[in-house]
Design a protein around this nucleic acid. Structure first.
Lengths: 109, 109
DNA sequence: ATACTGTATGACTATATAGTCATATAATCA
DNA sequence: TGATTATATGACTATATAGTCATACAGTAT
């Protein structure tokens, strides 16, 4: 079992979860503290904290302490590119499945 | 719970798994049949079949039947871009953690 | 019809994951 | 000091996931 492949899977797994996607999306504008994040994504504080910790541990988020508050930010701009690419896959799948376009005609106007 | 976010997470989940990453990587050169795939990635035929089915169901792979053989191919080129971006995140993390470079100096020579 | 090859699946086990509730900890303030 | 605010975590439950083994099924050939 290649360890590199496992690390790669871990990074992708850090993004492949609805609650974490909501967090990352909320962080598009930059650093936010936990107290801003969990109300914005409408999740429990404890659950939000766990996901933030998960992503920080896996190298996706940076953590900064300022007094009582902890600020998190997305560390790698590639994260947003990945999500945007995955979004375009989803959009195309939805179009193809709804019969709007044929599978072979991706991207053509 | 936004369904769109769930679809997005599902697509990313389809890639966020070592065995599936091995499969996708093997499919970089194009379409392959199951009988070529599972020996190449060194996994059981049944397990390989399940992962192939998973990815096809989630819109990542295309399936083509030719006699007894089933050929699979990656449907969206974005898949490879996503994996390459995630790989660059992993590489940077490894570098930063090994102390080779500072976190703030990403990408600079 | 029988045998053979390639692929899928039922049934199961082990492990991982997401989420909740209650509580602990840390920093700040009155 | 005690109260308050912000964040993390222990303990638990429910569900999802990956993998295995044996078997079923489909297509082809004899």
């Amino acid at each position: 079992m290649s360890t590199a492949t496992h690390y790669l899977a871990d990074v992708l797994k850090s993004l492949a979860q609805p609650t974490r996607l909501k967090i990352v999306d909320f962080l598009r504008d930059g650093e936010r503290c936990v107290c801003e994040i969990f109300p914005a994504i409408d999740e429990e504080q404890s659950n939000t904290s766990r996901h933030l910790n998960h992503m920080q541990t896996h190298g996706i988020l940076a953590r900064r302490k300022e007094g009582v508050k902890i600020f998190y930010a997305v560390k790698h701009p590639e994260v947003f590119e990945i999500i945007d690419l995955a979004t375009s896959i989803v959009k195309n799948e939805v179009e193809v499945r709804s019969g709007l376009i044929r599978g072979a005609e991706r991207g053509k106007p």
